[in-house]
Amino acid sequence: MMIFALIMLVIWLVFLMIGYGFYALSPWVISLFIGINLLSFIITWYDKRIATQNQTSAQTQRNRISEKTLYLYALIGGWPAAIIAQQYFRHKTQKNAFKYRFWLSIVINIVLTLGISYLYLLYTL
């Protein structure tokens, strides 16, 4: 599954470079996507860290990152890094309800991105 995650990341990076090279995608937009992905990776790591600490120490239970937050980051474009973080840290890889909603947010992100790109190209040509 880690290979699949890396392939998804490479495809995502290729699309960003195509957007930058052929369609004059602003470097600010690319920086925003990279920043969102870094945050997505960090919050997935942090949630796994807190989950592990909560299992080992019953005295100090800390609040975890909400699943809705993880879905939101996937929806706004942080899904490539989230997939890699999930596989690398083995976090939420067994929870089917989470996986279905997570992948649904990825599909929605891709459909919205393609739709917005299509409309942009349609009205700028």
Rank of each mutant, 00 (worst) to 15 (best):
R64D: 05
H91E: 07
Q87G: 07
A58F: 13
F22T: 04
L38G: 14
F89W: 11
A51P: 02
T124R: 13
L70D: 02
F102R: 04
T56I: 14
M2E: 09
L70Q: 01
S26M: 05
Y23D: 02
I84G: 00
L72D: 07
G78A: 02
W103C: 11
L13G: 00
I84R: 00
W12H: 15
Y88R: 10
L121T: 03
A24N: 05
P80G: 11
Y120R: 10
N109V: 05
T52C: 10
A81C: 03
L6V: 11
I42N: 11
A82D: 03
W79K: 03
R101C: 14
L112E: 05
F33D: 00
L39H: 10
Q61D: 07
I116V: 11
L39R: 06
Y23F: 15
L72T: 14
Q55I: 07
F22V: 04
W12I: 05
D47N: 08
L75A: 09
G115A: 10
K48E: 08
T124Y: 10
Q59K: 14
L6I: 13
K95D: 15
Y73K: 02
K95Q: 12
L32V: 08
I84Q: 00
S117R: 06
I50R: 09
I30K: 00
Y73I: 02
F33R: 00
L75E: 03
V111P: 11
F98H: 04
I30R: 00
L112N: 12
L9V: 12
Y123G: 06
I18W: 00
R49T: 13
T60V: 12
S31E: 08
T113E: 01
R90F: 08
R62W: 14
I7E: 07
S26T: 04
I34F: 05
A24D: 10
T124E: 08
V14R: 00
